[in-house]
């Protein structure tokens, strides 16, 4: 994979630094809402990608370049603050409403607090083939590395939550069968829909809202300090998957998509009904019992998952209702 296209002067400078032999710190000056700032989100996504698959045009050693890490830290400070502000009301209400020893109930309260953008219902009943394909493109950024961010928590947990996370991840990573690796199942779904299944193929097309969904997972994944948020994110993700996946299956069947598309979402109806219980009860509840100080971060992670998902979903549904697309063709032409 090559570096994505820059989306403004800041990301252009960051990418120039990344390909240089000795990357320099590029100062990030927060001037816009970081959650919807295309320039900031694409830069952060690329900096994080150094810790996943990397880029053919960037030296692998630059993952630990002090200059790039300093730039990343500035972006992360603004991003984390925005995420805490976004979720603080819901987290506060969940902490007030429920007994402190009922983490699953609090996660459920944070989830219920988010508005449903109606994405799953739209895909089930109204979406055109093209809109359904667009949905797959947005989702490809995460699903082609499905569960990779959450795997960073394994060495940072101990005892019951570690065992439970490993059990969940074993299923995500194919249960010992290469052809059942969930990211591979999604690549097949992309192929079935006539889309490029290559890792990173669609990065230039997706908007900041979709990048933010992914960047939040990496922020939580790459800082041990935020492991509570990472596990709360996982719990909310799994808890809001089974029922929408049923609708995604319905939409794919209605539109006559290839069986590989329905197979991916079909697998997740049952898998995520299991994972939801494991993540909420066996991981998050046990983690908070071990480390009560992580309780608020668990709920932060859950809130970030559902709130950012709702924003990205609303962007799609609003664009589709207006006969438009939430993908970035215009921007691509502008920056090309």
């Amino acid at each position: 994979m090559q570096l994505p296209r820059p989306r403004g002067p800041f990301s252009a400078q960051v990418f120039a630094s990344m390909v240089s032999p000795d990357p320099a710190h590029v100062a990030y000056d927060a001037h816009a809402d970081v959650l919807s700032d295309e320039d900031a989100q694409i830069a952060l996504w690329a900096l994080y990608e150094l810790s996943y698959r990397g880029f053919d045009d960037v030296d692998a050693r630059h993952e630990w370049s002090p200059g790039l890490l300093a730039t990343r830290a500035q972006l992360e400070a603004a991003f984390e603050q925005a995420l805490r502000e976004l979720t603080e009301p819901a987290v506060g209400r969940a902490l007030d409403a429920d007994r402190p020893d009922r983490v699953p109930a609090q996660i459920a309260a944070v989830i219920d607090d988010a508005e449903d953008a109606g994405l799953a219902r739209f895909l089930q009943r109204e979406a055109t083939e093209e809109q359904y394909r667009e949905f797959l493109v947005h989702r490809s950024i995460y699903h082609l590395k499905e569960s990779d961010p959450h795997a960073f928590a394994i060495p940072r947990l101990d005892g019951a939550p570690k065992v439970a996370l490993a059990e969940l991840q074993y299923d995500e990573f194919g249960g010992g069968r290469v052809d059942r690796l969930h990211s591979t199942l999604f690549a097949r779904a992309l192929e079935g829909a006539g889309l490029d299944p290559t890792y990173g193929a669609h990065i230039d097309a997706v908007p900041a809202a979709t990048l933010a969904v992914n960047n939040a997972m990496s922020l939580f994944a790459l800082h041990r300090r935020l492991r509570g948020a990472l596990m709360g994110h996982l719990a909310a993700f799994e808890s809001t998957s089974s029922l929408p996946c049923r609708r995604y299956v319905g939409g794919a069947e209605r539109l006559g998509f290839d069986a590989r598309v329905t197979a991916y979402f079909d697998e997740h109806v049952e898998a995520d009904a299991v994972h939801e219980q494991v993540a909420c009860r066996s991981i998050c509840q046990r983690l908070v019992e071990q480390h009560p100080e992580l309780q608020r971060d668990v709920l932060l992670g859950a809130g970030v998952c559902v709130q950012l998902d709702a924003r990205a979903g609303a962007l799609m549904v609003d664009a589709w209702r207006a006969g438009d697309s939430a993908l970035l063709d215009t921007l691509q032409q502008e920056v090309a």
Binding site: S242, L243, R246, V269, E270, D272, A273, V274, E276, Q277
Partner: peptide
């Protein structure tokens, strides 16, 4: 996950 509510459309498995 085995359904206990009796309303799963994928019984015996839970579908949420």
């Amino acid at each position: 996950a085995v359904c206990l509510c009796g309303r799963s459309q994928r019984a015996p498995w839970c579908d949420g």
